[in-house]
Amino acid sequence: MRSRAGEAVKAWNGTGEAYAVSYASLCLGTGPQLIAALGPGEGRTLLDVGSGTSALLAEFAREGWAVTGCEPEPSMRAVAEREHPDIVCVDGGLPDLPFAQESFDTVTANFVLNHVADPRESARELARVARQRVAATIWVQSPSWFWREVCDRAGLVPAEGERLPPERDFARTTAGFAEMVTDAGWRGVQVSESTWTWRASLASLWASAEGGVAGAGLFYRSLDPAGRSAFRRGFDELCDVLAVGDAVPLEHTAAIAVGEPR
């Protein structure tokens, strides 16, 4: 249950507030590895593409980077402006960024290339606006398995989502990610895996679905009242099995690629 191609943009429409209280903390899981790979900022400039609520940019700012965000979804930018008013967040997104060539020392894209319609074209665009380094992450193991099991318990068939044409797609593995960004022209690529446990509160998990976040939220939005009731029943049943206290520990794995733009 993952958003692909044309679904990638509409899956996030109006979801800024729900994302902020749910998946924003999950996606920060790659922050320590990205910061370690890119080093202290020392005043260097960094652009984060698909910056969402700017939570990751705030982490980079604390490490001395001069940061800028780029985010196409208005509800995400609204949350970013409220929570991080000192961080500039520009309206824009892949594959056509509103910046000149080599505008930033470093460019990052955290869980963005797994959603775009043409990953190689988008990876090339990230490199175009970078002078020194470019870094990106994708999911190897995402929250999708949790929502599939919710659907199984609810007796619902989850939407599979539109798949990319074979010539545009890539294997959602560490090796496949490395091959894709290398194809896109990144040089000296190093890709590593990071696995961590997201201890998601029951309230935040449900907020992500009810608020329409990502593929699961988009699916929930498509259901009629009876389907939504069944989905909630499946959610409650699964949480009864998995929850530790008022949270569900969910293991996730990301691939993290760092390279040079040319």
Rank of each mutant, 00 (worst) to 15 (best):
R172C: 02
L46C: 09
A209G: 10
F177S: 05
P225W: 09
D96I: 01
L126P: 05
F60V: 03
A226R: 15
H115Y: 15
G29F: 11
E179V: 08
A5F: 11
A61K: 15
A255T: 05
G234N: 12
L97P: 01
S208L: 10
L34A: 08
R82A: 04
D96A: 15
G50K: 11
C27M: 13
T173M: 04
N114E: 13
E179A: 14
L94M: 08
Q141Y: 09
T15H: 10
C89E: 00
R133Y: 09
D224F: 08
V112L: 14
G176V: 04
A18D: 05
N13M: 05
G52Q: 13
H115W: 15
P95I: 06
S208Y: 13
A109W: 12
G64P: 04
K10C: 03
K10Y: 14
H84F: 15
R232Y: 10
P225H: 07
G29Q: 10
V140W: 09
A159M: 14
A127E: 00
V107T: 00
F99R: 00
E193T: 11
S51I: 01
V140T: 04
G161E: 06
G176A: 07
R168G: 01
G92M: 04
T68M: 00
R128I: 00
V191H: 09
E73R: 05
P165L: 03
G14F: 09
E83R: 14
E7S: 13
V189I: 01
G234V: 12
W196L: 06
L218Q: 15
G93A: 04
R148C: 13
S229M: 07
E63S: 10
M180T: 06
P166Q: 03
S142P: 04
L46T: 01
V67M: 02
A216M: 15
L26A: 12
A171H: 06
G16W: 05
F60M: 07
T182I: 02
W196H: 10
G93C: 08
S192G: 10
P72N: 01
A136E: 07
R221G: 14
W196K: 03
L38P: 09
I35L: 13
S54H: 07
G69Y: 06
G161P: 11
T45I: 02
